[in-house]
């Protein structure tokens, strides 16, 4: 099995994409009133933290930040076995809030479906928006992102990997073409 890697975004590309998304979120929501960020573990929570830092710099005011673990909401328990369950840390009420859900890669949309179910169990947000660093297509559910870092056309059997450094900053996005093996 051989691997072929292509770097799609380097760290400055990621920086620019996140800065643009931060501005788009603020523009569309007209500031940060009632706005909260919730990242999907693991990956989305780190990106949500980076977006929160940028929004704070732009607005000069902090924004509520949470993380959701969707393992308990997955629809593939029987076929994948029991994956480790992480913690959901949303220490504020999401009732009547505009929630921006953040994930690294948008693929089938099943993760987002699960994350929305998880949020609904915690309260009744006024709205949920979706921000992703990479949209790679192949949706299986009627879900679309509101903010996208980069659209990357992919084949189903390819893989997208977002790498984080030890400080949980996204440093690189790679497209991995695997030969001699089916996709996931």
């Amino acid at each position: 099995m051989s691997e072929q890697n292509t770097v799609i975004l380097n760290s400055s590309g990621i920086e620019r994409a996140l800065t643009r998304i931060a501005h788009e979120i603020l523009e569309r929501n007209k500031g940060i009133d009632d706005l909260v960020l919730v990242g999907i573990r693991t990956g989305g929570d780190h990106l949500a933290a980076e977006l929160a830092r940028r929004i704070e710099t732009i607005e000069g005011q902090g924004i509520e930040l949470g993380a959701v673990d969707i393992t308990m909401y997955r629809d593939d328990l029987g076929s994948r076995g029991s994956l480790p369950v992480g913690k959901t840390d949303i220490l504020f009420s999401i009732d009547e809030k505009k929630v921006v859900l953040v994930d690294d890669v948008l693929f089938t949309g099943r993760t987002i479906r699960a994350a929305m179910d998880a949020l609904m169990d915690l309260g009744r947000p006024r709205s949920i928006q979706l921000a992703v660093l990479i949209d790679r297509g192949h949706r299986e559910l009627p879900i679309r992102p509101d903010y996208v870092g980069r659209n990357v056309p992919t084949a189903r059997e390819e893989d997208i990997e977002v790498r984080f450094d030890q400080d949980n900053r996204a440093v690189e996005v790679r497209l991995i073409k695997q030969q001699g093996r089916g996709g996931n």
Binding site: M72, Y73, R74
Partner: peptide, 15 residues
């Protein structure tokens, strides 16, 4: 991971 559910208002997940 599951402990947190028990302190929620809606103490139920669809797992």
């Amino acid at each position: 991971g599951f402990k947190e559910i028990n302190s929620r208002d809606i103490k139920k997940v669809p797992t």
